[in-house]
């Protein structure tokens, strides 16, 4: 496995917000068809890492490669057709558009230039619509398909947020705290979904729920203060003394199945 080209790799990646170094020399390598989680205390730079990998913020130094190709200077919208999609920690939907339209747009984003033709209508047999319906089914949103996203309950909005990334049918899917703010039943369903996504996508996700992290990850990266602290399989990471110290000893409680 270790000789395989990583699907996504970051090499000494740094991000600055003004004079503040939020990400400092992060080197990371995501193996294809694995579930890779990123953990770390608040403010560790996990979301910033996602922002840099997806192009939302510019790297101040370092390199990002997708399948060995340098994408450091590719803009965020152009990384989607290359097969990278993400969900956000802070829900960001098209509030006035209905659930189906939100997902149709997310699916269309894989072929964005098709949508630039002002005379091209939305065919009922449209591929993007079919994807939207499939994702609604998968995330149990079908019964609210015609409701505006802004009218959904918090849990439903969180599911739709994850669905937006799924609808892009990416090769690499990045989920930023997919279970945050969810009820217990939803958390279990989300865990099952992430595991399921791992079958035909590469998954990179940020999560505070150690039960999920230790249970379904192939690799765990621990971050602290903008740096990678430890990386390895769940069992190794859980028993690492540095990690225990970073988490003040009591946050890693999840058991390993």
């Amino acid at each position: 496995m270790s000789t395989q080209t990583p699907i996504l790799a970051a090499d000494k990646l740094s991000v600055r917000y003004g004079s503040f170094l939020a990400l400092s020399d992060v080197t990371l390598s995501i193996k294809p068809n694995t579930i890779h989680s990123v953990i770390g205390p608040n403010g560790a730079g996990k979301t910033t890492l996602f922002h840099a990998l997806t192009g939302r913020v510019r790297a101040s130094s370092g390199r990002i490669t997708l399948d060995g190709q340098d994408i450091t200077h590719v803009s965020d919208d152009k990384r989607v057709p290359l097969g990278i999609a993400r969900s956000f920690q802070v829900t960001s939907l098209f509030q006035n558009l209905n659930v189906r339209e939100n997902l149709r747009l997310a699916a269309q984003g894989r072929n964005p230039l098709q949508a630039l033709a002002p005379w091209r209508g939305v065919d009922p047999r449209d591929h993007a619509l079919a994807v939207a319906d499939e994702v609604m089914e998968r995330l149990e949103l079908t019964h609210v398909s015609d409701r505006a996203a802004g009218e959904l309950s918090h849990g439903q909005q969180r599911r739709l947020e994850v669905g937006m990334a799924v609808a892009a049918k990416p090769r690499l899917i990045l989920l930023d705290e997919p279970t945050s703010g969810m009820g217990i039943d939803d958390v279990e369903a989300m865990k099952a979904l992430i595991r399921d996504l791992g079958r035909d996508h590469t998954v990179l996700f940020i999560e505070h729920n150690m039960g999920i992290v230790m249970n379904i990850s192939d690799t765990v990266t621990v971050m602290r203060a903008g740096r990678v602290l430890v990386e390895g399989p769940p069992a190794v990471v859980r028993d690492d003394p540095e990690v225990r110290r970073a988490y003040l000893g009591n946050m890693i409680t999840g058991d390993i199945a």
Partner: peptide, 22 residues
């Protein structure tokens, strides 16, 4: 059209429209 519907998405949430590839 798909174009017009994408414009509505841009009006609603420009950042997300870019993040999903437009």
């Amino acid at each position: 059209s798909t174009f017009g519907r994408t414009l509505l998405a841009v009006r609603d949430n420009e950042e997300r429209a870019r993040a999903i590839g437009f």
